[in-house]
Every structure is written in structure tokens, then in C-alpha cells.
């Protein structure tokens, strides 16, 4: 028996909206500790990793580990029927479920929707991602980072991110010209302005902006984002989801000449 009830169903809607341009189908693994999901884009350049802890749910029960193979497109269609204020419950009582039940309830419990989504059997192509001690970590406003990526992608397809003790520099070079945006440490008490740099080792890495712009669809999940980098390593972009878990994106760097 598996049942997970999320009080703020809108979070689940936002998660699916954030990943639907990147991955087509995913395996959600349910266990006693919660839900986890890892999936890559078709080119295996980017990876999304979701972890939702059981104690972040209003109700959570998972008698034995199960894997739920979902088409993101079909999941989106079902979730469109959920109101932003609804609770969302996932439920199946089969051991090898062929479908997953969804219940959407409004606040007054006066409207209850029930859907059943057919499940897919997907071969799991998961990667082992070691816990990495990143040498450069940048915490900043997710809206600000999203804006920087959007603005710079009109000049070039790739952005070079270079960190130093007191600042991070986003540089682009394109046919029309070049540009850079330098962001300094800023302990402002205004979320949108605060920038927190923890630079043990400076890094200089280049990434494809179209992936970063896809990751930034998660901006509605958290007002802050962290960029985690080490030389010769994929970038890890993390959106923490208040007392529920985190949505992480990994992006392999470009081969710099």
C-alpha cells in the first residue's frame, strides 16, 4: 500500500511544470523515507534529481518500495485538473501497480476529483552522483539568476561562469558582440539582492544557456537558488523546497578550448 498526501498540491504541479521541458518520462521511487526521482534529458547532458521527504507530507505510507513509471506529458494533463489550493494524494494498493490514483480535494472538501494514470515500465538509467564538496557555491535570488540567464542568452548560446573570492562573473561572446554581468557578495536583507559566495577555489566553467533557462522554470519553487561548481565537474543547480525536499539539476560543462 502506498499513499502520499501533499497539503500544498501546488508544489507538485510546480515540480512537474519545472521538469516537463527537460525529461519525457520518469521513474518515481517511493520508499519509507519518501519519494525520489532521477532522470536525464535525451542527450544525457542534463539530469534532474528530486527528493521529497516523507515528513513533508500531510500523510505518508509506503509499506514496501515501489517504482512508478510516469509519462510527464500525461501527468501534466492530470495535474491541470487540480486547483492551486487543492491537496493532492497519490495512492496505489497494488505491489506491482499498473496505474496510480490521484485525488484532488479543495479546501472545503466540497469538491473531490479522482484520476487514475496508467503507469509505464521504464528501464532505469540512473547515474551514481557522489556527494561533492563543491569548491565554489553561490546562493542568490532565483529570479535574479533566471533574469541573468535570459538576458545573456540573447547574445550567446553559452555562458562562462567565473568565480573569485568576492564576485561571480557571467560572460558571453556572440556574433553581435560580447558582454558580462558581475555579481558581488551582498549581505543585503532584501532577498532579491542578497548574494552569498562561498569560494574555496575559484572556477571557470562554460555551460549551454538553453539548459540553464530550462532549469530556471523551477524559480516558482524557491526564491533562492544555489549554484554549485568545481573544476571539471557538472554544475549542480539546487532549488530547496521548504520542509519537503529539493529539486536539483546537473549540467555537464562545455568542452572549453
Amino acid at each position: 500500500m502506498f499513499e502520499a498526501k501533499l497539503q500544498q498540491g501546488v508544489i507538485f504541479k510546480k515540480i512537474v511544470d519545472a521538469i516537463k521541458d527537460l525529461v519525457k518520462s520518469v521513474n518515481i521511487d517511493a520508499s519509507t523515507s519518501g519519494l525520489s526521482m532521477q532522470a536525464m534529458d535525451s542527450a544525457h547532458v542534463a539530469l534532474v534529481s528530486l527528493k521529497l521527504n516523507e515528513n513533508g507530507f500531510k500523510d505518508y505510507r509506503c509499506d514496501r518500495p515501489i517504482t512508478l513509471g510516469l509519462s510527464i506529458e500525461n501527468l501534466s494533463k492530470i495535474l491541470k485538473c487540480a486547483g492551486n489550493d487543492d491537496t493532492i494524494t497519490l495512492q496505489t494498493d497494488e505491489e506491482e501497480p499498473s496505474s496510480l490514483k490521484f485525488f484532488f480535494e479543495n479546501q472545503q472538501a466540497s469538491k473531490i476529483s479522482e484520476f487514475s494514470l496508467n503507469l509505464m515500465s521504464l528501464d532505469s538509467e540512473s547515474l551514481g552522483i557522489p556527494d561533492t564538496d563543491y569548491s565554489s557555491v553561490i546562493q542568490m535570488s532565483s529570479a535574479e539568476f533566471s533574469r541573468i540567464c535570459k538576458e545573456l542568452s540573447s547574445i550567446s548560446e553559452t555562458v562562462e561562469i567565473e568565480t573569485s573570492k568576492e564576485s561571480v562573473k557571467f560572460s558571453v561572446q556572440g556574433d553581435i558582440g560580447a558582454g558580462s554581468i558581475t555579481v558581488k557578495n551582498n549581505q543585503s536583507d532584501k532577498d532579491v539582492d542578497r548574494v552569498d559566495l562561498q569560494i574555496d577555489q575559484p572556477v571557470k566553467l562554460t555551460f549551454a544557456l538553453r539548459y540553464l533557462n530550462m532549469f530556471n522554470k523551477a524559480v516558482s519553487l524557491s526564491s533562492t537558488v544555489s549554484l554549485n561548481m568545481s573544476e571539471e565537474n557538472p554544475l549542480m543547480v539546487e532549488y530547496k523546497i521548504d520542509d519537503l525536499g529539493s529539486l536539483r539539476f546537473y549540467l555537464a560543462p562545455k568542452i572549453s578550448d
Binding site: M40, A43, H44, V45, A46, L47, E125, S126, L127, G128, I129, P130, A208, E232, N233, P234, Y250, A252, P253, K254, I255
Partner: peptide, 14 residues
């Protein structure tokens, strides 16, 4: 995309 690394270069399949 020829000038783009792939994640398999950094992480093992499990």
C-alpha cells in the same frame, strides 16, 4: 553537440 561534455564522463551508471 560536439563541444558539449556528456554526464557519463563524470558519473557512473548504477
Amino acid at each position: 553537440v560536439e563541444d558539449q561534455f556528456n554526464l557519463a564522463k563524470f558519473y557512473e551508471e548504477v
